[in-house]
């Protein structure tokens, strides 16, 4: 549900190639808590004020707004630890990912891994997958088409090296 922005990192570490990518998040926990509590307090204060004067029908609508805020917060929390990583070390290719409440881990033999990057239009709407043993796994969800093509080229060269 939540649209995310990316921070990605490719590096070589003691002979291993590591690609990591995760959504960009510009708000700290404390800031997020402050924003949520501030908005909820504003809604609650207004609702209590009017309800106290007998105009209680403002209450359910303020409740609805607080409900929407709680939902928005839950969605944000659900995605805050999203990430994807791909490591090539020795003969092993290791994929790890977490997306909302789904997470996964896959190990493949480097010799059998294939990289495919299909674009519906040249250079646009590209889908990058690594496959092995008839099973395909998509990589680079948080990347732009350009970055996906670049990653595909890097992976191919690392796998052949």
């Amino acid at each position: 549900m939540e649209q995310v922005n990316t921070e990605s990192l490719s590096r070589e570490s003691s002979g291993a190639f590591v690609f990591q990518s995760r959504p960009n998040c510009s708000q700290t926990h404390a800031q997020e808590r402050l924003a949520f509590r501030g908005l909820a307090a504003l809604c609650l204060g207004t609702a209590i004020g009017f309800a106290g004067m007998g105009y209680w029908l403002v209450l359910p609508f303020e409740g609805l707004v607080i409900g929407l805020l709680i939902w928005a917060r839950a969605v944000r929390h659900g995605h805050e630890s999203d990430y994807e990583s791909l490591t090539i070390e020795g003969d092993m290719v290791v994929l790890e990912w977490r997306m909302g409440n789904q997470s996964g881990h896959r190990q493949m033999n480097r010799q059998w891994v294939r990289v495919a990057c299909d674009c519906t239009v040249p250079g646009r709407s590209c889908r990058l997958c690594v496959s092995s043993h008839g099973r395909e796994t998509e990589v680079g969800h948080y990347l732009s088409d350009e970055a996906r093509l670049q990653l595909a080229a890097t992976l191919r060269s690392k796998l052949q090296a």
Binding site: E84, R127, E138, V139, G140
Partner: peptide, 8 residues
Amino acid sequence: MSDAAHAH
């Protein structure tokens, strides 16, 4: 990153 079946 996800299996193709679970892609965005």
